[in-house]
Design a protein around this nucleic acid. Structure first.
Length: 749
RNA sequence: GCGCGGUUAGCUCAGUUGGUAGAGCAUCUCAUUUACACUGAGAGGGUCGUAGGUUCGAGCCCUACACCGCGCACCA
C-alpha cells in the first residue's frame, strides 16, 4: 500500500499533477482519443459529441458563475467521452468589445489622464491587445484549475484571424442577400462612451426625479425632461379623448413657449394614453423612440435638440452650448418667469436607461446605422422566408430543444417582438465594418430618403458618400475609406458554433461536429446569444447551430441571496478549492440545482463535499486493503450477485438522469449510494465475511467490493474527476490507464 | 400592463403518471482508538402560502387571492 494512501486525501497536492497527466494524454482532443475495447475487439469511435464553451469575456476573472458553467459542461463532456463518443469541447474567449474598451480606457484615464483620442485608434487597439493577452492567460489557467477537459488545441478568440474572416464573410453574404442595410433610425446613444447600445444592453435604474407640468397653450403637458422641450411643436392626444374633441387633427394654435411664441400643430394618435396625466403630450421625435414613430406616422418634422455629447444645439436659443444637466434648472427658471409652470411633482419615480456595459445615461438619437433586417424576405431553398421566421421555426419544429421547456415561451416572446437589429457600434475595438466609401469631395448635408419629413441637424457629422462598396478587402482605386464603426459583439458571437470549427472553409471539423450536440449556457443570455446563433447558423449554414439548449441559473449564496459586493457574500471558487479541493467546489455548485433554477453555494456545503471526497478515499483504501482486485473471476454468491445487480441499477439511473440533464439527481443518487448504502451497510456487513473462514464467500465478496468500487469511480468521475482519477492510479486491475477514458458502465438491470 | 417562476422541517431545497410527507445543514441523545472523527447509530421537528373545487384519495390537477423573485413592455 502506497504510504500516501494511508493519509487523508490531500486535494491540494494531488490536483495539479492529475490535470497535467490528462493534458499530456492528449485526450481532450477527440482526434487523439483511443479506440474502444469492446467484446468484438477494437472499435473506432464514430459518434460525435460537440459543444462550445460560452466564451467568457476577456475582462473577466473566474467567479462562481463561470465555474458553474465549466463544471456542468465538463460533466457532460466527460460523460460523453467515457461513453465512447468523439467528444469535443471548444474553449474560447470573447472580446466583449464595449466592456473591454471601456475598461482599458478607464485605466488609461486613471493612470495617465489620457483619453482614447489622445492615443489614436492604433495605439489604443495595441493597448487593448496587450490587456487581452494578459487576461487570456489567466482565464485559461483558471479553466484548467477547475478541471475543464477543454481541447485547447482548438482555442478560439472572437478577434483572432479566423474569426475575423468568418465575421467579414458573414457580413458580406448577408448584405448581398439584402438582409443588411444602412438607415437612419433612432438608436440608444451613450453620450459617455460615444456609441450606440442595443436594446438588450440597457439597464434601467430607478430614480426619484421632479415631474413638471407645463402650460402649453390651452393644454397641460408633463415631462421629466424639460431640456428636450425646446423644439416641441406638435401636441398629441388620443383621437377618442372626449375632453379634446373640439380640437381637430392638423389644426394649428399659437402659443407662448420657452423661447417665445410658436405655432403648434394638433396631432391625433393612439399612442397618447388618455389615462396618463392630462392625456396630452408634446413630442420630441429626435430623442424618443415613441415620438420618433409618431413623427414617422404623420410625416412630421424631426429636429435634433441635443448633440452627441449631451450639449444643447442652436434650437435652444440662449441656452445653446449648455450641457443638458446644467440647462435643466435654467429652463425651469425661464418657464417659471413666464408663468408657464402649472405644478411640480417632486417625487416622481422614473426609470432611467443606462448602458449596462459601464457607460452613461442613454440619450436616444437619430443615427445612420447598419441594421440586420429580421423581417426582410429572402429566398432559401426556393422558399420565401425571413430571419424571424427561421428563428421561430427552429424551435417550433424541435430542431432545437430547449431545457427547461418553459424558456421556449420566453424565447418566442422575444423573437416575435423582435425589431431590426442595429449592429454598428461607434467604438474602435471590434470587427470593423467591411464597407468602403469614396467621395468626390462634396459634402452633402444629411437628408435621408427612408425617413419621411425633414430631419435637420446642426452638426452634420455623417456624410453621404457618393460611392459605397461592401467588401472584405479595400476596393481598387484611390480615395476609399473604411466605415469607422465596428460590429456589435453579438454579431460575431452569433457565428460561434461554426466559426470555431473553421467556417467559411468546409473543414473536416465542420462536417464532423456541426450542428453541435448541446449548447449549455446561463438563462440570462438566451436572447443575446442563443437566438442570434440560431439566426446566423440558419442563414449561413442552413442548419441549426445546436440540437439542444440547456439553461442553467445563477449562483447565489447559502441563503439564496444574489452575490454582491455590498453584501460581501462573494465566495471565490479558487480560494475554496485551495481549502477544500476542486472536486468539493464542483459538486457543491451542481448539487441540488435543478435545470434553470439558481444554484446555492456556501462554505459549509463545500466542506461537506470535501468530507465526501475523503470518504471515497477511505472506502477505496478499505477495499484494496481487503484484497479487492485480487479475485476478479471468483464466482458470486447469491447475495453478492444481487448486490452487484443493485449497483448496476444505480448505474442505469445515473446514466438516465445525466441524459435528461438532471445531473443534480444523478449526483444525489451516487452520493447516497456510496456513502449510506455502500459504506455504511455493505462494507460493514463485509467485515465479518472478510475475516471469516468461508473462502468462497470471502473471494466472492472481494470481487463484489472491487466491482462496485470501480463502477462508482467511473460514474463519479465526471462530477469529481480529480479524486477519482487519483484513486484509479492505485487500482491493481483496470481497463484503461486513465479513468478519463475508461468505458462508461453499460446500462444493465 | 403582459408573461414566467416560487411559497413544503429552524435554514437551503427535493418530491418524476395523484396513493401513509423526504434529504442536507442545524439541534439533541448515544457510541468511540474505528477503512474513515473529514466517523457511526438514533431522536425531535411540517394544519405542504390562503380559500374553494375535481377525486375513493391532492404537496402534486383546476379556479381565485396573497406575498416573494425574475423577464418583457411602458414610463409625456
Amino acid at each position: 500500500m502506497d504510504p500516501k494512501f494511508l493519509q487523508p486525501y490531500n486535494p491540494k497536492e494531488a490536483e495539479p499533477s492529475i490535470y497535467t497527466r490528462w493534458e499530456e494524454s492528449g485526450y481532450f482532443n477527440p482526434d487523439n482519443l483511443p479506440p474502444l475495447n469492446g467484446a468484438e475487439g477494437q472499435k473506432e469511435r464514430t459518434e460525435a459529441f460537440s459543444m462550445v464553451l460560452p466564451p467568457p469575456n476577456v475582462t473577466g476573472i473566474l467567479h462562481m458563475g463561470s465555474a458553474l458553467m465549466l463544471v456542468i459542461e465538463d460533466i457532460l463532456v466527460r460523460h460523453a467521452r467515457m461513453q465512447g463518443k468523439r467528444a469535443l469541447w471548444i474553449p474560447g474567449t470573447d472580446s466583449a468589445a464595449i466592456a473591454t474598451q471601456a475598461k482599458v480606457e478607464g485605466e488609461l484615464y486613471k493612470k495617465e489622464k489620457k483619453t482614447r483620442h489622445d492615443l489614436g485608434r492604433e495605439e489604443l487597439l495595441s493597448r487593448i491587445d496587450t490587456f487581452v493577452k494578459e487576461s487570456e492567460k489567466t482565464i485559461v489557467e483558471q479553466m484548467k484549475h477547475v478541471g475543464a477537459s477543454l481541447d485547447f488545441s482548438r482555442y478560439a478568440y472572437t478577434m483572432d484571424d479566423r474569426r475575423y474572416h468568418a465575421v467579414m464573410e458573414a457580413f458580406v453574404r448577408m448584405y448581398n442577400a439584402g438582409l443588411i442595410y444602412r438607415g437612419s433610425r433612432i438608436v440608444n446613444w451613450d453620450p459617455k462612451l460615444q456609441t450606440t447600445v442595443s436594446d438588450d444592453e440597457m439597464d434601467y435604474v430607478e430614480e426619484s426625479v421632479p415631474f413638471y407640468y407645463f402650460k402649453y397653450g390651452p393644454f397641460v403637458i408633463g415631462t421629466v425632461r424639460p431640456e428636450t422641450k425646446f423644439g416641441d411643436k406638435y401636441v398629441v392626444m388620443h383621437p377618442d379623448d372626449a375632453r379634446y374633441k373640439e380640437w381637430k387633427h392638423g389644426q394649428t394654435i399659437d402659443l407662448e413657449w420657452i423661447n417665445g411664441p410658436i405655432t403648434a400643430t394638433i396631432i391625433k394618435d393612439d399612442a397618447a394614453d388618455m389615462e396618463m396625466g392630462s392625456g396630452v403630450m408634446t413630442i420630441t421625435p429626435a430623442h424618443s423612440q415613441v415620438d420618433f414613430e409618431i413623427a414617422k406616422r404623420h410625416n412630421l418634422d424631426i429636429e435634433q435638440v441635443i448633440d452627441d455629447r449631451g450639449i444643447l444645439l442652436s434650437i435652444a436659443g440662449e441656452l445653446a452650448g449648455q450641457h443638458i444637466k446644467k440647462a435643466r434648472p435654467l429652463i425651469i427658471e425661464k418657464l417659471k418667469a413666464k408663468g408657464l409652470i402649472e405644478k411640480i411633482d417632486e417625487k416622481y419615480i422614473h426609470n432611467i436607461a443606462t448602458n449596462s456595459r459601464g457607460g452613461g445615461i442613454i440619450e436616444p438619437q437619430i443615427k445612420k446605422q447598419w441594421f440586420v433586417g429580421v423581417n426582410t424576405e429572402f429566398e432559401k431553398n426556393g422558399k420565401k422566408t425571413t430571419l424571424k421566421k427561421m428563428m421561430q421555426e427552429a424551435v417550433e419544429s424541435n430542431a432545437v430543444e430547449i431545457t427547461p421547456e418553459r424558456y421556449e415561451k420566453t424565447y418566442f416572446n422575444w423573437v416575435n417582438n423582435l425589431r431590426d437589429w442595429c449592429i454598428s457600434r461607434q467604438i474602435w475595438f471590434g470587427h470593423r465594418i467591411p464597407v468602403w466609401y469614396r467621395n468626390s469631395g462634396q459634402q452633402s448635408v444629411d437628408s435621408e430618403q427612408a425617413t419621411p419629413g425633414r430631419i435637420r441637424r446642426d452638426h452634420a457629422t455623417e456624410t453621404d458618400a457618393e460611392e459605397m462598396c461592401v467588401s472584405i478587402e479595400k476596393p481598387e482605386g484611390e480615395g476609399w475609406e473604411q466605415d469607422p464603426d465596428t460590429l456589435d459583439t453579438w454579431f460575431s458571437s452569433g457565428l460561434w458554433t461554426f466559426s470555431t470549427l473553421g467556417w467559411p472553409d468546409e473543414t473536416k471539423d465542420l462536417k464532423t461536429f456541426h450542428p453541435t450536440s448541446i449548447l449549455e449556457t446561463g438563462y440570462d443570455i438566451i436572447f443575446f446569444w442563443v437566438a442570434r446563433m440560431i439566426l446566423m447558423s440558419g442563414f449561413l449554414l442552413d442548419e441549426v447551430p445546436f440540437k439542444k439548449v440547456y439553461l442553467h441559473g445563477l449562483v447565489r449564496d447559502g441563503q439564496g441571496r444574489k452575490i454582491s459586493k455590498s453584501l460581501g457574500n462573494n465566495i471565490d471558487p479558487l480560494d475554496m478549492a485551495e481549502k477544500y479541493g476542486m472536486d468539493a467546489v464542483r459538486v457543491s455548485l451542481i448539487a441540488g440545482m435543478a435545470p434553470g433554477t439558481d444554484s446555492k453555494i456556501s462554505e459549509e456545503k463545500i466542506r461537506g463535499y470535501k468530507n465526501f471526497a475523503n470518504k471515497i478515499w477511505n472506502i477505496s483504501r478499505f477495499v484494496l486493503e481487503n484484497g479487492g482486485g485480487t479475485t476478479t473471476d471468483a464466482p458470486y454468491t447469491e447475495t453478492d450477485e444481487a448486490l452487484a445487480r443493485e449497483a448496476d441499477v444505480l448505474a442505469k439511473h445515473v446514466s438516465e438522469h445525466i441524459e435528461k440533464f438532471r445531473i443534480d439527481i444523478a449526483f444525489d443518487l451516487l452520493y447516497h449510494f456510496i456513502w449510506h448504502r455502500f459504506a455504511d451497510e455493505i462494507l460493514e456487513e463485509s467485515k465479518p465475511i472478510l475475516k471469516g473462514e468461508d473462502a468462497r464467500s470471502k473471494s466472492s465478496r472481494q470481487r463484489l467490493l472491487y466491482y462496485i468500487l470501480t463502477l462508482f469511480l467511473k460514474l463519479l468521475h465526471p462530477f469529481m474527476p480529480f479524486v477519482t482519477e487519483e484513486i484509479w492510479t492505485y487500482l491493481p486491475k483496470k481497463e484503461t490507464e486513465l479513468l478519463l477514458v475508461a468505458p462508461w458502465p453499460e446500462a444493465r438491470g
